Simulated scan of single mutants.
Amino acid sequence: MSKNEADILLVEDNPGDVRLTREAFKDGKIANTLHVTEDGVDALDFCYQRGEFADAPCPDLILLDLNLPRKDGEEVLEELKADSNLRHIPVIVLTSSDSHDDLVKSYDLHANAYLTKPVDPVEFIDTIQTLEQFWLSLVQLPECDSR
């Protein structure tokens, strides 16, 4: 990724987790923009730039909860990874589920990583900051193709 600022899409319906994620990114050293959708349908609309998200940027990274209203995280992941224009976007499953079945299914659907959200708020923020440092400082990410 050649640009210095990353567009990150957080797909999360829990306001507390959204707040903690915003706090963790705010404290980070990397310039980025955190976009939030609260369900799977809106997440896909954001990625496909449909409806109210017609002017949305292509996300450089997606943080995806599994337990979402309207369309769950597995369905979102499956659709993103089936689309040749979107499959290159790294999708990090960030969920409260520590179920082995959820873990295996997420990787079967080509998740790039699976993280279980820590219950402790300080540990949660540390996890997000470590994720940010790795994915946005060390890893080279492809840029989105024009759609």
Rank of each mutant, 00 (worst) to 15 (best):
S106D: 08
H110E: 14
N67Q: 09
I62T: 10
E78V: 00
E74I: 03
P59T: 06
G73M: 04
D83F: 07
P90S: 10
D98Q: 03
I62P: 12
K71F: 06
S97M: 02
P90L: 08
A82F: 00
N85R: 14
P90Q: 09
R87Y: 15
F124S: 08
P118K: 03
L86P: 10
V104H: 01
L64E: 11
P57H: 04
K81Y: 09
L109D: 05
L68I: 02
A82N: 15
P69T: 08
H88G: 14
I89Q: 06
E123A: 15
K105W: 05
H100P: 05
L61I: 06
N67G: 01
R70N: 14
L61Q: 08
S99A: 04
E75I: 00
L86K: 12
Y114V: 04
L86F: 07
S97K: 02
L64C: 13
D102L: 03
I92F: 09
A56R: 04
P69C: 11
L77Y: 04
Y114R: 05
T116H: 01
S106Y: 00
L115V: 10
P118Y: 05
E123S: 13
S96C: 11
A111G: 08
A82P: 05
D102C: 02
N85Y: 11
D83S: 14
L103C: 10
Y114K: 04
P69W: 06
D101H: 03
L103D: 02
E79Y: 00
S97Y: 04
K81E: 13
L103A: 00
K71H: 09
L109V: 05
K81S: 12
L63T: 10
S96V: 13
V104L: 07
L94R: 03
T116L: 01
S106A: 15
N67D: 11
V91Y: 10
K71R: 15
P59K: 01
D101P: 00
E74Y: 07
P69K: 08
D83R: 06
D102S: 11
H110Q: 14
I62W: 05
V76H: 09
P59C: 07
S97R: 03
D120P: 02
P121T: 05
D101Q: 09
L64P: 11
L68H: 07
T116A: 04
I92S: 12
D98W: 03
L80P: 13
Y114A: 05
P118S: 06
L66D: 07
L80H: 07
L80C: 09
I62R: 06
L94C: 11
T116V: 15
N67P: 00
P121L: 11
L77G: 09
V93P: 10
N85L: 14
V119H: 03
S96P: 00
F124H: 06
L86D: 14
D60N: 15
E123V: 01
L115W: 05
F124Y: 15
A111D: 07
R70L: 13
V93W: 05
L66W: 01
D60Y: 01
V91G: 10
V91R: 09
L77D: 12
D101A: 11
N112E: 14
S97E: 06
E123D: 15
D60M: 01
T95W: 02
D102V: 01
A113C: 10
I62A: 12
P69L: 07
P59H: 06
H100M: 10
N67V: 06
